[in-house]
Design a binder for these strands. Structure first.
Length: 363
DNA sequence: GAGGCGTGGTC
DNA sequence: TGACCAAGCCT
């Protein structure tokens, strides 16, 4: 701590950035009111998700579930379906569980970070964000934006997850929150994040437009582009996936519910991986029998596409296929036929939607 | 502390 | 087109 600047530069930095935020913040729906539920939902949706991707889902979600009680009373299927397109479905499941915990205990959303932190899906960042934005608690919310902004402002070396880096960032974030008597804690946390999201971006930071460029040690050193360091990641693995579009006489499509976590609960088309040196059709027949207990006969190859999940590049080969056995009414556990127009009402990942793009509602 | 978990958008 | 990303959490 002793090597940090004295208090007054912190106060000046804070006032400068807060003034910038008040003038330049984006008008976002969850900033319209300090409602804790709306803040909570928005923070969970924003975990690893861009604002632009989240906005339409957010509006629909809080309209359908305007408070924790309404979410607690919903089926998990509906919750997951409402989450479709956002990814990381564990977040939706955790939010659902948390709402049910509060409802079962007959409790409102707790106003302090420590209690919020105990709720499923609420980590250090989200607890601090809700407590500060909705309840005015002066606790620093440290997310990726804040890590990046502070690592540049104060030239902190290292990367996310490294103890020395995290410790230094946390120390700076706490100091800054305390500066200037910790006024407007919610606005301060958002100001830091807003700067990171719109100016102090990961690549090509717009330093010329930065309200606190005079404070930035990395800019003085010309090192803003190389901070923070990125954690080394393994390169992507390529796999092939054959997939069957099977219809019944009414044109409904056969889907199976995934059993294994953490994608459990989402529906998928019958599919199976295959090696690039074998036939997709043969692999599809084999995998359909072993994984779903159905015997299919590939009839027509559909437009293939590429899908990336985490660090797997998946080359997908979809086929229209006939069901040899069993009879459509005797499909095994987890399997069901769904009309294409009802696909939005079942929980499904994006790969299913991609595969069915351009597939009509009649055979 | 590393690894797993989605998606849609950029460059 | 492929790599990299975007307001994390959990194990």
């Amino acid at each position: 701590m002793s090597d940090l600047p004295p208090a007054s530069p912190f106060r000046l930095l804070r006032r400068t950035l807060l003034a910038w935020f008040r003038k330049n913040q984006r008008p976002l729906p969850f900033r319209e009111s300090p409602d804790a539920w709306r803040v909570w939902v928005s923070e969970v949706m924003l975990q690893q998700t861009r604002v632009e991707a989240m906005l339409p889902r957010y509006r629909a979600f809080v309209t359908r579930f305007p408070n924790p009680g309404s979410l607690a009373g919903a089926d998990e299927d509906e919750v997951l379906a409402a989450w479709a397109g956002l990814g990381y479905y564990g977040r939706a499941r955790a939010l659902h569980r948390a709402a049910r915990q509060l409802a079962a205990a007959g409790r409102a959303i707790p106003p302090d970070a420590a209690s919020l932190r105990k709720l499923p899906g609420v980590g250090d960042y989200t607890a601090a964000a809700i407590a500060s934005i909705a309840f005015g608690v002066p606790v620093a919310a440290v997310d990726g934006n804040v890590r990046r902004v502070l690592s540049r402002l104060f030239l902190v070396e290292g990367y996310r997850g490294r103890a020395s880096f995290e410790g230094r960032i946390r120390e700076l974030a706490d100091r800054l929150m305390e500066a200037d008597d910790a006024r407007d804690p919610g606005a301060w946390n958002q100001a830091l994040m807003e700067l990171g999201a719109t100016v102090c971006t990961p690549s090509a930071p717009r330093c010329a437009n930065c309200p606190v460029r005079e404070f930035c040690w990395a800019r003085v050193a010309g090192r803003q582009a190389e901070l923070p360091q990125r954690r080394p990641r393994p390169s992507a693995v390529s796999v092939c996936l054959a997939m069957a579009v099977v219809r019944d006489q009414e044109g409904r499509i056969l889907v199976f519910r995934r059993g294994e976590s953490p994608m459990r609960g989402l529906y998928e088309l019958p599919c199976g991986e295959y090696r690039s040196d074998e036939s997709a059709e043969e692999a599809l027949v084999r995998e359909a029998i072993s994984r779903y207990g159905i015997h299919v006969k590939p009839a027509r190859e559909l437009a293939g596409f590429r899908h990336t999940v985490m660090n797997r590049r998946i080359s997908v080969a979809p086929f229209e296929a006939d069901l040899v056995e069993p009879a459509p009414g005797a499909i095994g556990p987890g399997g069901r036929f769904v009309h294409p127009r009802d696909l939005d009402r079942i929980p499904a990942g994006s790969m299913l939607r991609k595969a069915l793009q351009g597939v009509g509602s009649t055979p």
